[in-house]
């Protein structure tokens, strides 16, 4: 399967979980505008899903698009579609069907029927990777971010850390308090 198919699904997913937020930017400053697409978190998902013992990037993308179809069916539409073609405001509801395991098995490919834990595992992992990819240092690896882990070099301070006010790793903090709690 084409990487495009997978990346389209992953982009729609990460953009739903961590979107660009012009509203927050207006109130809190421009840094709050950026979201997961700006840090290319979809590529982080692709890398990690491809580097487990049973490469599952394609299955994860299939699952996301099956959820889109299920959502359409639930709304009374004909069953064809994919997550990236759903309006952004409806995507979270589609992903919710995975979270709550409300999928019609007929919409799922064989792999999911043979392994009941697979859907839960992929659903949890999608979210985990998205949050890790965005809020950890990964984006800061810049041009080396898709290298094997031993060959990544931190090139800059991740924008997400600026958004949350994390100063980055430190060798110590002068924060000892003297309090008697007993």
């Amino acid at each position: 399967m084409q990487n495009d198919y997978i990346l389209n699904a992953f982009q729609a997913y990460v953009d739903t979980i961590i979107p660009r937020t012009p509203g927050l930017a207006e109130v809190y400053g421009y840094i709050q505008y950026y979201g997961a697409l700006d840090l290319q978190v979809d590529q982080f998902l692709l890398y990690n899903f491809e580097h487990v013992s049973m490469s599952s990037a394609e299955l994860a993308a299939l699952l996301l698009n099956a959820a889109a179809v299920q959502w359409l069916v639930n709304q009374g539409y004909e069953g064809r579609g994919s997550l990236d073609l759903l309006p952004p405001s409806d995507r979270l509801s589609a992903i919710m069907l995975l979270e709550l395991q409300q999928m019609d098995p007929r919409l799922l490919s064989e792999e999911f029927l043979n392994d009941p834990g697979l859907m839960v595992m992929l659903t949890d992992t999608l979210l985990y990777y998205t949050l890790q990819g965005y809020y950890s240092e990964w984006a800061g690896y810049g041009t080396t971010r898709l290298n094997p882990p031993q060959e990544r070099v931190l090139e800059y301070f991740p924008l997400s850390w600026e958004q949350v006010g994390y100063p980055g790793p430190s060798l110590g903090y002068r924060v000892l308090r003297t309090v008697d709690i007993s």
Partner: peptide, 9 residues
Amino acid sequence: GEQLKEFMR
């Protein structure tokens, strides 16, 4: 969504 970014802020 936006709520996550607000909380993380």
